[in-house]
Design a binder for these strands. Structure first.
Length: 316
DNA sequence: TAGGGACCTGCC
DNA sequence: GCAGGTCCCT
């Protein structure tokens, strides 16, 4: 096991925010206040820097803005089976979040109101495309709480790679393992109709070449990757974008879900406010956002998304 | 091509 | 009624 500490300028990295914002689903807060997460072959147990701001809970959809410190650094103490470089890669700590946010506002000034209140939220770069592929198959027509539970149940089909603070941490299973799970077993576990679609997608993934095929789409143009994913039965434009983004790291992807659709209508397409995002409208809206933000589309999208998740009940 | 219903489950 | 939708059918 490795121990290392990571020092970041105050307000540039909020691990709790990143881990709760629907990008990854394998993090949990332990009783001792540390955060424990799995990413591919790696696990991390993180002691967050001390803070005097109220603890945010997912139960109350209240978000308390973090005070921006007067310069200074925050220290994250990490235990892990991986290296500091792996940790920094997962959270893209090589990027200066403040500079990214400033560039987003330069490209799209209308997004400025969404930037400040989510300081420390970062676009993540998970390491295992297969794990992310299946995690996002749990997301349609679902909520983050239940998605997290479902991903945990799928992960339990994988081998135990370590036990940390009494928690057995599983390597996420390969597609072959998921494909072999009987539909009824998943339905009994609370997966609903996804008990059928998830093993089906596992088979479709295997037919195309499994992990290697998914990896190959990383170096394909975004448009090609998106089209290939969308061709699978059970994957529509939104899931294809989520997988292109979080599994394959295509940062020009703009997953247009119910939240982003509301935001894009509010900002750019008021005439579509009460319309459904058809394939045409989806493509038009996403392309518009992409034309403004370019390679920062996904980073900006993450702010828009989570702001809307936290505030949609009180927005008109 | 757009609109509408069905689909599992759980929480507001 | 709605949650990080998609499929199927008019």
């Amino acid at each position: 096991m490795n121990r290392f500490s990571v020092s970041i300028p105050t307000g540039r990295f909020d691990l709790e925010l990143c881990a709760s914002s629907g990008q990854v689903f394998r993090w949990q807060r332990l009783d001792d206040g540390t955060w424990l997460g799995v990413d591919g072959d790696h696990w991390y147990r993180v002691l967050l820097p001390p803070t005097d701001t109220p603890v945010r809970t997912r139960d109350s959809l209240k978000y308390v803005a973090k005070e921006k410190g007067p310069g200074g650094e925050e220290i994250f103490e990490v235990e892990s089976n991986a290296s500091r470089e792996d940790f920094e890669s997962l959270f893209r700590l090589d990027l200066d979040a403040e500079e990214v946010e400033a560039e987003i506002v330069r490209r799209a000034p209308e997004l400025e109101p969404y930037m400040g209140t989510l300081a420390g939220l970062r676009l993540m770069e998970p390491s295992d495309p297969v794990e992310i592929f299946f995690a996002f198959l749990c997301t349609p027509n679902n909520n983050i709480r239940r998605i997290t539970q479902m991903v945990r149940k799928l992960a339990a089909y994988g081998l135990v790679m370590d036990t940390v603070q009494g928690n057995e941490l599983h390597r996420f299973p390969e597609a072959e393992v998921i494909a072999a799970i009987p539909e009824q077993e998943l339905r009994s576990a609370g997966f609903g109709y996804r008990g059928r679609t998830i093993p089906s997608l596992a088979n479709q993934l295997i037919e195309r070449g499994g992990r290697a095929w998914l990896e190959s789409l990383k170096s394909a143009p975004y448009e090609d990757a998106h089209r290939e994913l969308k061709a699978m039965k059970g994957i529509g434009p939104k899931l294809a974008d989520c997988i292109a983004l979080f599994a394959l790291h295509h940062t020009e992807a703009v997953p247009v879900d119910t939240h982003i659709w509301q935001a894009l209508c509010r900002l750019y397409f008021p005439e579509w406010k009460d319309k459904a995002p058809t394939d045409q409208r989806y493509e038009t809206a996403a392309a518009h956002f992409r034309s403004k933000l370019g390679d920062l589309s996904a980073w900006a999208h993450q702010y828009l998304f989570y702001d809307n998740v936290l505030n949609w009940r009180t927005r008109n």
